[in-house]
Design a protein around this nucleic acid. Structure first.
Lengths: 175, 175
DNA sequence: CAGATGGGTTCATTCACCGAACCGAGGATG
DNA sequence: CATCCTCGGTTCGGTGAATGAACCCATCTG
């Protein structure tokens, strides 16, 4: 966690994980990356985090192999941050955390996750109750739930209103 | 999260969850509570967190209904912090996080979780592969894995070496 | 050429974390 | 009955991270 006192004495994989993704904003960056956000500016707009903090987080996530920075156009040179397998592997954690948050502190469902192949809503562990299998992240379809603001201010949130598969790059309409 | 900028604009259950359990040390306190730690001093010794921070976290966790503070003896008056159902519901999150940490950053397994009824090691979602059911947290048996230091310095870590069920109050030997 | 865009860096302020010291109630010890 | 010890904190000065606003620079666009 790169603070004065780290979790080094902990001898625990949870602590080790938190050293990497336990800092403020980090898990939300990964969440957005799974939702298909890839560009610095889109993260910035959607998260509302300070620019310096975002830059630092993208840096660490990249060096830890959770995101990958890659050039997607020359002239002007532009990079995007794409989530790797290691980042995708955080999906069960984020799923569990989101479920806990909704069940204990949220009223309405904000986002709904379905098995893209059959349309069934995912169970608590990311499994498809109909097919009886764990749904790969690429086959998860995210659709807005009833509690979500239907007309958000920022274009990234607007783009996230459209049903889309996880990991699919986000398409922002010029609007 | 009670910082200058909170996650309020996020409209997301993950962000809401992180506002509550996303601060430094918080998830480790919950982890210890699930492991059976209940007393201020035991948390202190095992975590190595600053006293003020620990007190603050126990306070928030209690007011959020994740721990419950209760008198377990008069004279001298002593309280313990017992994890509630809401706290127990964080088990899937911690399980997923620990698994991710071990698979991607740990070498050896530090702790092993088994179905107490049949001894089978839990699957990634906390299910028993033999029985085919999700194992209730109370029926999870925690045993030390090969990577765990067999002779730790503090008495809490030593007590956690003995196989024990989750939630079962920790017994520290006087030693 | 002026302005916009994308992706940052710099900087002063604020705030949380840190560790050490202190504190008070209530046994235990001699 | 004076002292020490334990438990569960609080207080406090110092440090380092987060914040938000400003600035920067290369490249398009009009």
């Amino acid at each position: 966690m790169a603070l004065g006192k780290d979790y080094a004495t902990q001898e625990c994989s949870i602590a080790r994980a938190l050293e990497i993704v336990g800092e403020r904003w980090t898990l939300l960056v990964v969440r957005d990356a799974l939702y298909g956000v890839r560009r610095y500016n889109d993260f910035l707009v959607h998260l509302g985090a300070p620019r310096a903090v975002l830059a630092a987080r993208l840096q660490t996530l990249t060096s830890e192999g959770i995101l990958e920075k890659r050039r997607y156009q020359e002239s002007p040179p532009r990079d995007e941050y794409v989530v790797t397998e290691r980042g995708i592997a955080l999906w069960p954690t984020l799923r569990a955390l989101g479920l806990w948050g909704r069940e204990h502190f949220g009223e309405e469902q904000l986002r709904c996750f379905r098995h893209a192949d059959c349309g069934t809503e995912l169970g608590p562990y990311g499994e498809c109750p109909a097919c009886g299998t764990i749904v790969p992240v690429r086959d998860v379809l995210m659709v807005p739930g009833p509690g979500l603001d239907p007309d958000p201010a920022d274009p990234v949130s607007r783009a996230l209103l459209r049903p889309k598969r996880l990991l699919q790059p986000l398409e922002i309409d010029p609007a």
